[in-house]
Simulated assay, not measured.
Amino acid sequence: MKLRDITDALTDGDTSTMRRGFCALVDQHDTVEATSPGMLVVALNRLCVSLKDDQAEMPAGICAALGLPCGSTYAQGSAAAKREAARLARHLMATG
């Protein structure tokens, strides 16, 4: 996935792509192409705000990556990502 896909989805309100972007940024085994790792952190923060009320279930692997039980929603994942912001930012800065 590319950072541009995420920023376009945020602009267009494309929830499906926002969810995929959130998963790609949270999953330690996935990468998002970007010219600046700092922009990945910004994108994750924006996704957390956009998905804060999303009641769709996240994939099990993303729940596990955030330390949440299977069946957790993107709203719960967004809250967990905010709590884990420092750890996730370190990962994004190292891989971006």
Rank of each mutant, 00 (worst) to 15 (best):
M1C: 04
A85D: 13
D8G: 00
V42Q: 10
A43G: 05
L3D: 08
D8H: 11
L3E: 11
I62S: 03
D12P: 00
A80N: 00
P69K: 05
V32N: 02
C63M: 06
A81S: 14
L92G: 09
A94R: 09
E33P: 00
D53G: 11
D54W: 05
H91W: 11
D30H: 12
K82A: 06
A79V: 12
L88T: 08
R20D: 12
P59I: 04
A34D: 02
R19T: 08
D54H: 05
L44N: 05
A94I: 04
L40R: 07
V41G: 05
G96N: 07
A85C: 10
L10M: 05
C63S: 15
T35N: 12
Q28V: 14
G77C: 01
A75F: 05
D5S: 09
S72G: 10
P37T: 01
E57T: 15
D8T: 12
Y74G: 06
F22N: 04
C70Q: 15
T31D: 14
G77H: 01
R46T: 02
V32M: 01
E33D: 12
S50L: 03
L66Q: 05
P59R: 04
D14C: 05
R87M: 09
S36I: 04
A64S: 13
A86Y: 13
M58N: 03
L51P: 00
G21P: 09
L66F: 01
T7I: 08
M39P: 00
F22C: 05
T35C: 07
G13Q: 04
A43M: 07
H29G: 07
R83L: 10
S78Y: 05
D14H: 09
Q76L: 08
A64D: 13
G21L: 03
R83D: 10
H29C: 07
I62W: 01
A89F: 03
T35R: 13
R4Q: 14
R46D: 10
Q76K: 08
P69N: 09
A34N: 07
L25G: 04
H29A: 11
L47P: 06
T11V: 12
A24S: 12
C63G: 10
V26L: 02
A89M: 02
R87I: 07
P69S: 10
N45R: 14
T11C: 09
T73R: 02
D54E: 04
C70L: 12
S36F: 13
A86P: 01
R90E: 14
L44E: 01
T11E: 15
G96A: 08
K2A: 08
A89P: 07
C70S: 15
F22G: 07
A64Y: 08
L25M: 03
V26W: 03
V49W: 10
A75L: 09
M93K: 12
S78N: 02
T35K: 11
L66S: 00
E57H: 15
G61T: 06
D14N: 15
I6C: 02
L66P: 04
Y74T: 03
A89Q: 10
T15E: 12
A80K: 11
A24M: 00
A89L: 03
A65H: 02
V26F: 02
L68Q: 02
C23W: 00
A43Q: 07
H91A: 12
G71H: 05
S50A: 15
